[in-house]
Simulated assay, not measured.
Amino acid sequence: MDEIDRKIADILQTDGRAASVDIASAVGVSTSTANERVRRLVANGTITEWRGVLDPEKVGAALCVFVFLDLAYDGEAEACRALMAFPEVQELHHISGQHSYLMKVRVADTNALQRFLQSSVKPLPAVQRTETLVSLDALKETTVVKISPDARES
């Protein structure tokens, strides 16, 4: 991944709808070269998705919570597959420290959270304990990744 690829990737992760001609102009290459580089970034797995980002409040998912999960080893893989399948779960991280996993969840309100935990999470056989933290305000929430100058093409 050279400097031009890094610039193109940075542009696209902040504006996935950027026009090829605008990308080309911003990085100093022809439009066809910019298009080819974007195709290569997709083909090599650097760009993994194209999607719209929604305002959670406008789509009924205003409450953001983080749930620490302690899972038993027996049934852990099955529990993780089940958790990843729930649309309310935005992120699931295997973490170090006192808990096994950290899960980011978005639901409408505390009633919806209680229903989700009681009916979907806690019944999973491997779930031994949960601890829920409610986000009062998201000061920064992004999917933008800082691109290292040492980034290599895979």
Rank of each mutant, 00 (worst) to 15 (best):
M1T: 09
D2A: 05
D2L: 03
K7C: 12
A9H: 02
A9N: 00
D10K: 07
L12R: 10
A19Y: 02
V21M: 04
A24F: 03
S25Y: 09
A26N: 05
V27K: 04
G28T: 10
T31G: 12
A34N: 03
E36I: 13
R39Y: 09
R40F: 02
L41N: 14
G45P: 03
T46H: 07
T46D: 09
E49V: 05
E49T: 09
E49R: 06
R51H: 04
P56L: 10
E57P: 00
V59P: 00
G60Y: 01
A61M: 12
A62Y: 05
A62R: 10
L63S: 08
F66D: 06
F66Q: 03
V67C: 07
F68D: 14
L69H: 04
L71H: 05
L71P: 04
A72R: 13
A72G: 09
D74Q: 15
E76S: 13
A77M: 11
A77C: 02
E78Q: 14
A82G: 11
L83D: 01
M84A: 11
M84S: 11
M84Q: 15
A85T: 09
E88Q: 13
Q90Y: 09
K104N: 01
K104G: 00
V105H: 02
R106K: 10
R106Q: 13
V107E: 03
V107Y: 01
A108M: 10
A108Y: 07
T110S: 15
N111W: 04
L117F: 01
L117M: 14
Q118R: 13
Q118Y: 02
Q118S: 14
S119W: 05
Q128L: 12
R129Q: 09
E131C: 12
E131S: 13
V134N: 07
D137N: 15
L139M: 08
K140F: 04
E141T: 15
E141Y: 08
S148I: 08
P149V: 03
P149G: 13
P149Y: 04
E153I: 06
E153Q: 10
